[in-house]
Simulated scan of single mutants.
Amino acid sequence: MATLPSPANGTAVLPSSSASSVPARDPHPANYAWFLNISIWILATSSTAFLTLRIWGKRRRDRKLWWDDHFLISSWVCLIISCILQSFATTLGFGMDNRDIKDLATTRLVSLIAGFFLIIAAAWSKTSFAITLLRISDGWVRRFVWFVLLSTNIAIALSGVIQWAPCWPLQKQWHMELPGVCLRLWFINGYNIFVAAYSGLMDIALALLPWKIVWPMVIWSRREKLGITFSMSLGVFAGLTSFAKILALYLVTKPNAEPEFVMVLMILGTAESAITIIAVSIPVLRSSLKGNIRPVARSSLAVL
């Protein structure tokens, strides 16, 4: 997750005789904080509602919370922390042009921490769904889920490391005027784009696996199997959101990146985890409302 874009090239200081050629600064600069706040809190509220209903559904049927539930709750906590930090950053000027932010270093640091929590939220929400699939799969499908679980977490973890350690000294991340060295921008951007693409692809792969797992079962009607597999495949939208981040990552690292690009990237990062939480909660909620998922002959679908 990118933080604030690098400051745009400063306007050269011209002699007083040429001062009229220097473009005047807008006394009322654009501020996209409202757009960010509305978007992320709609996503946060929606994910909170569905996660609450998921837990309620399990409690209603006297089901204990398992590892997938705990990872999902932890992901939600990280998502909420990130949203709080993003909103706090907007009070410091996040959402405006860098030249209009009074305390740019603090704003960068807060947005950096907010982005880091989004990385954790994304990793743990995907882990939750993968653990659910591990409980209902076997054979090559189970091995594939393990591969996706491990490789995705490693890729996202490295993204978190790169976010925190691209510069030496570390403080140069938010105090850009400090002397030091940083990783090449093309490397950081390229790896983040790779993670977004790989994560999106794995989201879609996991979302399609229920069709392979559930469809051969004969204990439900065709209509019921369609309902179960469709509800378990909604994670495909999280994958599409991850793909959308690729364009946002490209735009946010351009030399003269507009602040609205950063807003879109943060919103997409929030949406990725929020959509996953919602998608993973819907199958459990559906089962609770319909009451049709029963432990039949050790059926793995009883975990829903």
Rank of each mutant, 00 (worst) to 15 (best):
S75P: 05
M96W: 06
S287Y: 05
R25T: 13
T107W: 04
A122G: 14
A244Y: 11
L79D: 04
A89K: 03
D138E: 08
S300C: 03
D68M: 07
I113Y: 14
L72R: 11
P179C: 00
V296K: 08
S74N: 05
N9W: 00
L209V: 14
S75A: 15
T48E: 01
V252K: 09
V296G: 02
S281T: 11
R223L: 06
R184F: 06
A49S: 06
M232H: 09
V236N: 02
H175K: 07
P179T: 06
Q171H: 08
I293V: 15
D62T: 04
I55F: 05
L150G: 09
I246P: 09
I156C: 09
L201Y: 13
L150Q: 10
L289S: 10
G160F: 03
V145H: 02
A238H: 08
V218K: 14
N189G: 08
R223K: 10
L170P: 03
F94H: 09
W211D: 02
N256R: 01
P169C: 04
I282T: 04
A8S: 02
S199D: 13
D26E: 05
S137V: 02
F94K: 04
W124S: 13
Q163E: 11
T241K: 00
Q86R: 08
I156L: 08
V280W: 00
G95A: 05
W164K: 06
P7T: 01
T241Y: 00
D26P: 14
T253Q: 07
K245P: 00
L112C: 06
G57K: 00
W56Y: 15
S16D: 15
I282R: 02
A257K: 02
S18M: 10
M266L: 12
R223C: 02
L112M: 09
N37S: 05
A271W: 08
A2D: 14
L265G: 13
N292L: 12
L251N: 07
V218F: 00
F50R: 03
E258V: 12
C83T: 07
V218Y: 08
I219V: 09
P166T: 09
L43P: 05
L208I: 08
T241Q: 04
L149A: 07
K172W: 01
P166Q: 14
L178S: 07
I55L: 15
I204E: 07
T90F: 04
L109H: 15
T48R: 00
D26S: 03
M266P: 01
R63Y: 12
K64F: 11
L289M: 14
C83L: 09
W41H: 13
L249G: 03
I55E: 06
F144N: 04
D62M: 06
T106M: 14
A114M: 06
F88T: 13
G291Q: 04
I277G: 02
